[in-house]
Design a protein around this nucleic acid. Structure first.
Lengths: 328, 328
DNA sequence: GTGAAAGCGCTAACAG
DNA sequence: CTGTTAGCGCTTTCAC
């Protein structure tokens, strides 16, 4: 156990060294106000020399900027917080926050009344930014003014909410194209959760692709877990028994689909091809054809955006690549 | 987008309502100083009524308590930060921190010089606590005084570092017992990373168990990934070709072991039984017999402990349960 | 036991 | 453009 007198360098030290006032140093370092170029250089030099780094806590107290980014996950229950996807988002956030002196926290917004939770985040002075996960349209339309510019969404965005998402539309299109190339002609889709707006894009892309090929549209609502995949597959088989390919909203659902197909005596990929989405570790083991999902990149970008008060506008789409394995 | 004038309740409001000074309210609420029981009740009542909750940012600035707990992962490279295990730890931390107004961050401590990283955390005023993951003995012995009482370890602890760990010793013992019951007599072990002190307990338990049964000890050093498992299995087969059971330090390694065994023509579990540890999702799919590992519980306890300045002492061991599947 | 006063380190009005 | 003056909300000596 070594002892080390923490040699805290404050603004005053830099001010003294640069021969200016604290306010000037603050302006120079944060870029929040006019500073003559000469002084600017001098201040930066002094700060560098002293190894000065602003205390985020003091800064947060002074300007109310907050010290943590909250990942707010909309969902029906806390189990969403147990899934690997959310864990990856939080992890990516923690990595981005680490060098900034900030932290990440996570909380669930109840699916039936998410706005209240967002409001309480708005009046929480520790909150630097909010990253919405699985946001509903209602939520996206009710962002408190106090949070404007500090809230982003992973998935679908809103008028005031910048969005970061995987290009699931293109991925669905590529998947259908692949299935068509391999001769499939009765291609169905089990979508993500119906209440999640970001499931609409891939569904639309699927529709467009099969329609363009002159094939019938076969869609059933699904979800993001194996159980939803099983239910979707059962419905699919009941309505269109001759289906020869299934596109699932995610890998977990795809595995559920495969389970039911096999239970019904269908060979995969012999009788029916199955394509998932996410490329989770299990997909490799089960030889599932799927699309990559750069969750960490997306989350890192989203968290970064809450910190820089990025303007709302176009959704930033991250590319997905089809990974062809045995299942399709 | 609704507007809501943030009705910030401060210490002054409570003081006014309770008819005392701010200092008294502070003492009453934090328990840091003498307060007459009458006043104590009055203050608590007022705080409750007003819905007062102390601003962690202001508090941190005033007493230097910090606003985030940092998960510090010792390892040879950043890829450790990509693994699901670390993500689970960070997620659990984020959940614990959320209601306290705190956040979580994560950083890697280089395996060849972890102490420097810990020192910089010690002088970082934003750091409320540190959770060590994969700490080496060197690191545990060199905790800066400034961090004393605020650093805990997941795995092995130290003189000043409280520890939280799964009871991997008991788990290894139970695994060996299970293998013995099923008739295995030439049981080998592929351990975790040799530089990680917490791999010693399960290895010792394995040794004790096989020795007690009058069987030979067969140990090779391994690691926590599939590659380590593959390498360990190769060495095992080279040195003791008649091995009929392998205990791996974790599931990922166990899967690598199984891969090599099959490549060498051994049937699992026919010729060789394999037992893993962690019970990751993949274990269920691959029908791997393994021990559960309550990572989230352990991490939550560890993060909680950094916040309450828990005293160092005995390691808190969390129970693991053997999950018997096909592989053993 | 309790209150008054002095900061924690920084930012933000407001003068100059 | 720059310095001065106030705080941000809380804790903490120090007298009373």
């Amino acid at each position: 156990m070594r002892d080390d007198p923490p040699p805290t360098v404050t603004l005053d030290h830099v001010a003294l060294a640069a021969g200016v006032s604290r306010a000037t140093v603050s302006r120079a370092l944060t870029g929040s106000g006019p500073v003559s170029t000469g002084v600017l250089r001098r201040v930066h030099a002094a700060a560098e020399a002293l190894g000065y780094v602003a205390d985020p806590v003091a800064r947060a107290l002074a300007n109310g900027a907050g010290t943590r980014v909250v990942v707010a996950v909309t969902g029906p229950s806390d189990v969403l917080l147990d899934c690997a996807y959310t864990a990856q988002v939080v992890m990516a956030g923690a990595r981005v926050c680490a060098p900034q002196g900030l932290g990440v926290a996570v909380r669930r917004l109840p699916l039936d009344a998410p706005v209240g939770g967002l409001l309480s985040l708005a009046r929480d002075r520790t909150v630097a930014g909010v990253v919405l996960v699985n946001a509903t349209r209602e939520l996206l339309a009710s962002v408190p003014a106090a949070l404007r510019g500090r809230v982003v969404s992973i998935g679908t965005g809103g008028a005031e909410v910048p969005a970061f998402d995987v290009d699931a539309g293109a991925a669905a299109g590529a998947s259908v194209a692949h299935l068509l190339r391999s001769g499939r002609r009765r291609i169905a889709m089990v979508t993500g959760p119906p209440w999640l707006p970001c499931t609409e894009r891939p569904a639309a892309a699927y529709r467009a692709a099969v329609t363009a090929a002159g094939l019938p549209v076969r869609v059933v609502p699904g979800g993001f877990d194996a159980e939803a995949g099983r239910a979707g597959a059962e419905e699919l088989l009941a309505r269109w028994p001759d289906t020869d390919a299934v596109l699932a909203g995610c890998d977990d659902a795809a595995l559920g689909v495969m389970e039911v197909l096999r239970r019904h005596g269908r060979q995969v990929p012999g009788d029916v091809a199955v394509v998932g989405f996410d490329d989770v570790p299990l997909a490799a083991v089960t030889e599932l054809t799927t699309g990559t999902h750069p969750v960490e990149q997306i989350a890192a970008a989203a968290v970064g955006a809450t910190l820089t008060r990025a303007p709302a506008g176009e959704t930033a789409y991250f590319p997905s690549e089809l990974v062809v394995r045995r299942s399709a």
